[in-house]
Design a binder for these strands. Structure first.
Lengths: 154, 154
DNA sequence: CCCGGTCGATTGCGTGGGCAATCAAAACGC
DNA sequence: GCGTTTTGATTGCCCACGCAATCGACCGGG
């Protein structure tokens, strides 16, 4: 019974390792941040992005781009955070279609509270398992993967 | 405004590269396989696993493990494939709780039809962007990430 | 036997997220 | 200045998936 396999062993392994590593890693981080801080990694990500932005505020569309989320996805993710008082939605005064997401004081506090745990978890499950050289190589490798396609069609 | 950041630059880059590369890669592969074959990468994955198994059959639980899916997730994923006639559900004769997922003839045909496209897409967006050395390093790196935690708690 | 414990699979339910449609507010064209 | 088009965000609808509860079937101790 010939199995369909036009990727050689190494290529196949690389592909499957990527799926497996990502899946396991995310599952662990989600579970642990949920357990230790009652916060999802996604919500944490929103708070981090905002905290790094000028004055803790960012336009919805820009934020969505940074988080690799669709506009609708972000809208609803913010609903939760707004409900929890961690983020405010502020209509943009100069362009009244647009809106800012702004980190509230409690939001910032909550982030600072959760950050040590999350960082420790990322270290334990990811960063600390790799050498500096491996981290460098990984960045390089993944950037090649993430970069725009050769665009033959466009 | 000090941003929360207890990971140094390289570590942060590695972490964000992983998220970004995975997200973009999956989005591209999903979109392209959907466009060229009307099939999701997840469904494709099920067919591949079955095709590699003895006689194209596998127990539900084992299949779920291979696919990194929860039992319920697999059950419902299979519903679709069964509905499409690509897979059969067969109750295990020796243990009537259990069930096999078996690849049908049409399922195998469908897989063989879709495979060239998918392989080409994985090559274009992933494998071919990397050198052999990078692939080797990547496998090694990701396996370290995926491997079981140090288990201090258990 | 048979009865409590366990196991494999499925189902109910909740959450997360994408796409397409929508809406209001700009921006553009003339 | 006033339609038309474009843009930013939100909403409706849908799908994927995980967890917990469930159900039938097996198993091991009396």
């Amino acid at each position: 019974m010939t199995t369909v396999c036009w990727l050689d062993d190494l290529e196949m392994q690389a592909w499957r390792s990527l799926l497996s590593a990502h899946s396991r890693l995310m599952a662990r981080l989600d579970a642990e941040l949920q357990a230790s801080q009652g916060m999802s990694v996604s919500d944490y990500g929103v708070l981090v992005q905002l905290s790094e932005a000028e004055e803790g505020r960012m336009r919805m569309s820009e934020l969505a781009d940074h988080l690799l989320l669709s506009p609708s996805g972000l809208t609803r993710r913010l609903d939760g955070l707004v409900g929890a008082g961690l983020v405010d939605r502020v209509r943009c005064p100069t362009d009244r279609r647009g809106a800012y997401a702004v980190l509230t004081a409690t939001g910032r506090a909550r982030l600072e509270e959760a950050a040590p745990d999350h960082v420790e978890q990322v270290r334990r499950h990811f960063v600390n398992r790799l050498s500096r050289r491996q981290l460098e190589a990984l960045v390089d490798t993944l950037n090649k993967v993430a970069s725009s396609p050769p665009c033959p069609g466009r």
